[in-house]
């Protein structure tokens, strides 16, 4: 049954062109198709199913989509067997990849608006392509704000990129941690506490959120409090996924399959179910 449809379920070999440790439990892999394979472009917010031979697959959002035009970057936190095996990949290794899948961030709709990016922990990875897009097409957007929260200073991802963006006069970048350590002389607390300081016009803003659901729920409250309309708040959701093509049923959330109807959703579509436990 060698059909195009079947191929969507069979991984393609991708070479690990580079691999590096981002934090103590997060690794980035730069992946390029093996041989003369062609890279399928991955839009910001889309994800690939990454396969470690013998271990299994995990859905991982792209953390950079245009790094070199021929490679895609994935930033993976070790959470279980599969992600542990993926994080152990070394340059030159080959892993399997299926994708890209899903609907990404609606960057076209954000043109001309103020953009507020709120990320928690590993949630910064799916938003990094957004920030790179904003950087490249800076004039197309209004004010740009990045509010990022992690557990501790040692969990901060993409330090180089963060410092680069913070060095620009047209990016407002704020970082906070749940737990400070000696030497941390910056914000401590929830990421929502950074919002009151951010400057944006709520009526003509777009907010993009990715992080733990509890964090996103509080972000939504804070953003709604500032007057950002729900259709201009977007979230990247996470659910169990096996097939990534809307067949296996695992990622169902209300009438949506997170893998194909998401993972990025506008708040007005999902607001009703966001607060329903075990939905």
């Amino acid at each position: 049954m060698h059909t195009e449809a079947a191929e969507r379920l069979v991984p393609t070999p991708y070479v690990v062109r580079d691999a590096w440790q981002e934090t103590h439990n997060v690794v980035s892999l730069e992946l390029a198709p093996e041989g003369d394979g062609v890279l399928e472009p991955c839009a910001p917010g889309q994800f690939n199913m990454l396969w470690a031979f013998g271990a299994g697959e995990a859905p991982i959002s792209a953390s950079s989509v245009g790094a070199s035009g021929s490679a895609v970057l994935h930033t993976i936190r070790q959470a279980g067997n599969v992600t542990r095996a993926l994080c152990a990949a070394a340059p030159g290794d080959v892993i399997g990849l299926r994708g890209p899948f899903g609907r990404g961030w609606p960057l076209e709709r954000a043109r001309g608006r103020d953009v507020i990016v709120m990320a928690g922990g590993i949630g910064l990875a799916p938003l990094r392509p957004v920030l790179e897009h904003l950087e490249t097409f800076r004039d197309d957007f209004g004010r740009v704000t990045l509010l990022y929260g992690t557990r501790s200073p040692e969990d901060i991802l993409f330090r180089g990129e963060l410092e680069n963006w913070r060095g620009r006069f047209d990016f407002d970048v704020q970082v906070t941690v749940d737990t400070a350590v000696r030497g941390w002389a910056s914000n401590v607390g929830a990421v929502t506490e950074l919002l009151p300081r951010a400057v944006f016009e709520p009526e003509r803003s777009m907010a993009l959120l990715c992080g733990p659901e509890i964090m996103m729920r509080f972000c939504i409250q804070a953003l709604r409090g500032r007057g950002v309309p729900p259709e201009w708040i977007h979230l990247s959701m996470e659910r169990n996924m096996k097939c990534a093509v809307g067949l296996c049923g695992h990622c169902q959330w209300g009438a949506d399959f997170v893998c194909k109807d998401g993972p990025v959703f506008p708040l007005d579509r999902i607001e009703g179910r966001l607060s329903v436990r075990e939905r």
Binding site: M1, H2, A6, L9, V10, P11, P13, V15, E34, F53, G92, D93, V94, G96
Partner: peptide
């Protein structure tokens, strides 16, 4: 859905069922 065999540092997919 498929079978695969290690090949070098990567893998080869076996012909489908």
């Amino acid at each position: 859905l498929f079978a695969a065999r290690r090949a070098g540092r990567g893998f080869e997919i076996e012909p489908p069922d």
